[in-house]
Structure formats: structure tokens, C-alpha cells
Write a protein that binds this DNA or RNA. Structure first.
Length: 241
DNA sequence: GCGACAG
DNA sequence: ATCTTGTCGC
């Protein structure tokens, strides 16, 4: 039940070498089995970069499940700390995302992250990393591949069809058609959930668009320039972190 | 050595 | 990530 740990697992600003070494130790702690309870709230997270290319704006949207109605939406901005390096995305995006997360009143039962879960060279993409940090079930929902390959000609064109994403004989995720005749999404376990269950929730949260609702709403919010955080004065403080 | 490479 | 117009198809 430890969320946003009092004693952080580690530092986020590291050299590439230190970050890679850290990933190797953290990867062994990822749980790829179902450890989730009843799902009533699903959160989606994403990040965007300012026009001036200087600040990161993370967005988190909380939706009711299975209705997919927006319950909460928050954004958080801070300066970019690290450059984008393939395989080290979490060190660039996790800090701002966690900042947005602290604004949530209600704890999510499941989180969908824009990026890979364990479908990563060292099996710990940002989706898995965030799940481990927050100790909440997460699913990686990426728009393109980082690691692995799949049989494109065996993937049906109808929404709901999928084929395994394989890397060196290991199934690391699934290539899922979330919308008929549209490029598939690359789904992988983040933490505290199985691949089968991940696919099930992604499809249950897809409403006629390529991106599942949680991630789609977070993506929109992160790019929305006319967004103002409502006054927090009368709002109740978070009860879970 | 060369290509690939989440966002 | 972001840069960018029109255009093909349901």
C-alpha cells in the first residue's frame, strides 16, 4: 500500500550508465501477474513538451470504469531534466508525471501509461517503472515498437484482434487492434497485472479511437493550452498519498 | 561494423 | 515529442 514512497526507491536524475544499471535491478521486482482488485477508477497519463522546448507538461486523467467518464483531470509542469534517450524514457518523463499524480484525490485501481510496460530492452519501460514506484497496477500502451517483432500478416483488421509481441522467443506484449483498420497499439504488462488482463482492459477502455480513453484523454489534456487547474481551496486533500 | 531506437 | 495540408475512406 505504499504509494509515492516516503523514502524514494531511487534518484531520477542519473547518468545513462547509472540509469541502465538501476533498471537492471528494478526489473527483477516487476510482477507480471494479476494482483488487482475491483476496478472502479482507471487513470491515464501522458506528457507533452512546450513550444519553447523547455518545459514538460504531464497530465493525468481519472476515469470511472466501465463508463469511462472523466472524474478528475490534472496537469503539472516543470523544466526538462534529461534528454530523450531510447530505453531511458522514464527518467525523463516520470518526475513530471508523478507531480501530476500527487494532485489526484482518488487513488486509481489501474493506470494506463503512454509508452512501453515490459516490452523494453531490459523489461522495464516507463509503464512498468511507474507501476513499481506507485505500487499500483499499470499497463503500457505504446503507439510504436521499441523491442520485439510480430507477425503482421496474422493480425486481423477488426478491432479486438491481436497477436503476441515477441523478443528473442519471449512474449513481451501484444499488438492490439483497438480500432478496425487502424494501426494497432503495442500493449504490455506494466506491473501487478497479466498480459491477458491487460489486453482485456485496453479493449474495454477503447471507444472508437486508436488510443484507449485514459491515454487519449491524458494526451489531449497535456496538449491543451487553455487549461486552468480549478481552485484547490475547497477540495479535499488526497487520502491515499 | 550497421541498423534500430517508446516519447 | 514536434514539425505540417490535403486527402482517401467509412
Amino acid at each position: 500500500m505504499t504509494n509515492q514512497p516516503e523514502q524514494p526507491l531511487h534518484e531520477w536524475t542519473l547518468t545513462p550508465e547509472a540509469a541502465i544499471a538501476l533498471q537492471r535491478t528494478l526489473a527483477s521486482q516487476i510482477i507480471r501477474e494479476d494482483r488487482l482488485g475491483e476496478v472502479r477508477f482507471v487513470a491515464g497519463v501522458d506528457m507533452a513538451i512546450n513550444e519553447q522546448h523547455e518545459a514538460a507538461r504531464a497530465a493525468v486523467v481519472l476515469l470511472s470504469y466501465p463508463e469511462m467518464e472523466i472524474v478528475e483531470k490534472h496537469v503539472y509542469e516543470e523544466p526538462i531534466r534529461m534528454p530523450y534517450v531510447p530505453g531511458l524514457l522514464s527518467f525523463r518523463e516520470a518526475p513530471p508525471v508523478l507531480g501530476a499524480f500527487k494532485k489526484l484525490r482518488q487513488k486509481p485501481d489501474l493506470i494506463m501509461v503512454d509508452g512501453q510496460g515490459i516490452a523494453h530492452p531490459r523489461r522495464i519501460g516507463i509503464g512498468a517503472h511507474l507501476g513499481l514506484w506507485l505500487n499500483i497496477p499499470t499497463i503500457g500502451c505504446a503507439k510504436s515498437i521499441l523491442s520485439g517483432h510480430y507477425k503482421k500478416d496474422e493480425l486481423g483488421e477488426e478491432a479486438g484482434s491481436w497477436v503476441p509481441l515477441v523478443d528473442k522467443h519471449e512474449v513481451i506484449g501484444a499488438v492490439v487492434r483497438t480500432r478496425t483498420k487502424v494501426n494497432p497499439m503495442f500493449i504490455s504488462v506494466g506491473h501487478l497485472i497479466s498480459l491477458e488482463t491487460s489486453i482485456r482492459y485496453v479493449l474495454a477502455c477503447s471507444k472508437g479511437y486508436r488510443l484507449p480513453e485514459p491515454t487519449r484523454q491524458a494526451d489531449k489534456l497535456s496538449k491543451d493550452n487553455n487549461w486552468e487547474e480549478p481552485d484547490e481551496h475547497e477540495q479535499q486533500p488526497s487520502l491515499w498519498q
